[in-house]
Amino acid sequence: MSKRDYYDVLGVSRGAEAAEIKSSYRKLAIKHHPDKNPDDAAAEEKFKEAAEAYEVLSNPEKRRRYDQFGHAGNSAAGGYGGGAGGMNMDDIFSQFGDIFGGGGGGNPFEGFFGGGGSRGGGRRVQRGSNLRVKIKLTLEEVAQGVEKKIKVNKQVACQTCDGTGAKDKSSYHTCSTCNGSGSVRRVTNTILGQMQTTSTCPTCNGEGIEITAKCTTCKGEGLTRSDENITINIPAGVSEGMQLSMSGKGNAAPRGGIPGDLIILVEETPHESLKRDGINVIYDLYINFADAALGTSVEIPTIDGKAKIKIEPGTQGGKILRLKGKGLPEVNSYHKGDQLVYVNVWTPKAVSKEERDVLEKLKESSNFKPQPGKNEKSFFERIKEYFE
């Protein structure tokens, strides 16, 4: 089943501002929240779908990729791409709690639906930052897809303290203020009855733990830097400027949080003979006047190697020959473009006396006088014919 357009899911236009997107998501999340719709699978699915749409459209970089490439822009190399079912409740509560002003990410809706505690406390789950790398690809690698192995220096969990940031186990314990929930609740009596509010624990800042003595290696951050070898599978058909995402391959988050993503920016290395035009490949072929008049066979480069093509007698300069299926594939598709061979008839800038004598005789022949429109279609007619 194909995904719905994220803008349609949230009911906003493509030019919607961040505040409008946030407000629309908030309304949908409250409407379809599972606590408000118990045992309603359809409502839960809509709740997840809205969360996935908001996760992309609220992020300027992911939104730009989505606007340019659609759903494939954030999933080509292991990004979200899993549909509404790809996000679980813990993901949603931990990442989007801030828009409800709730308790740091556990269940930000408890203030709306009277608690219930069915999904645990409100401990804040931190997220690591994203990493960005550039990958240079040849035209051949773009055509076939390629596996690249790179070394990335990034933040990883501290080996000394196992990512806790504490000097030892006795220095790492549950927050005494919130009892590990990461949030504190207050009940206020009003004329409408009791009102319950939830806020981030001021003692542990929503993490649910306290550290009395910091690790000497990471200074209490829970993170150190290290090199990691990462294998990147680049799909065939990517293009210059496209960004791919590998989920969880970015910087680690302290205390077992969610790792960031690795963003891969594609750069193309120019080919010595071929030029790219979308999924088509262009080659400029230069032949001399004699070969154009008499016909010949020539060998030309293609992405797959060399290919021999036939030049018919009387070929005119500007003629376009098509090698079907010799272009580039579309991303995540079996469709391939063509190689277009632009025929250019080379005119020498200087000739010898003998060559001049021959040419003087030839130009007097009626067969060598230009006859436009008689035997050959115009350049624009050939272009129109090709695309039709």
Rank of each mutant, 00 (worst) to 15 (best):
E385W: 09
T174S: 15
T160Y: 11
N288T: 14
G115P: 08
G114H: 08
I279K: 06
L28I: 01
E140A: 05
K275Y: 06
E240D: 04
K308D: 11
A43N: 13
N332E: 12
N205Y: 00
G206Y: 03
D162A: 02
N37I: 04
G97E: 04
A51K: 01
N153P: 07
K369T: 05
E364Q: 15
T216K: 10
D35K: 03
L28F: 04
Q144T: 14
R276D: 06
T174I: 05
P259M: 00
S24Y: 11
Y66G: 01
S118K: 08
V343H: 15
N288S: 15
S118N: 03
L340D: 06
S183L: 05
R124K: 12
V142Y: 02
P202M: 00
V9S: 02
T216I: 13
P108W: 08
D90M: 04
G314D: 14
G256V: 02
I150E: 04
G248N: 08
P270S: 07
A143G: 01
G256N: 08
F112C: 01
S352K: 09
F69E: 15
S129W: 00
Q316R: 13
A143F: 10
G104H: 02
K326P: 01
E268V: 09
I282S: 12
C218N: 14
G11I: 13
Q159M: 06
G115I: 07
K308F: 04
Y334P: 10
E61Y: 06
G83V: 00
R255I: 09
K27D: 11
D261L: 04
K374E: 13
G122H: 04
A157V: 03
G237V: 02
M1R: 07
F387R: 13
T224P: 08
C158S: 06
I211P: 10
R225C: 05
Y342T: 14
G327Q: 05
I232E: 01
G222V: 09
D304V: 05
R132K: 13
L192N: 10
V156S: 01
I92A: 09
Y172H: 08
I21F: 12
V133E: 14
G325D: 11
T198H: 04
C204L: 05
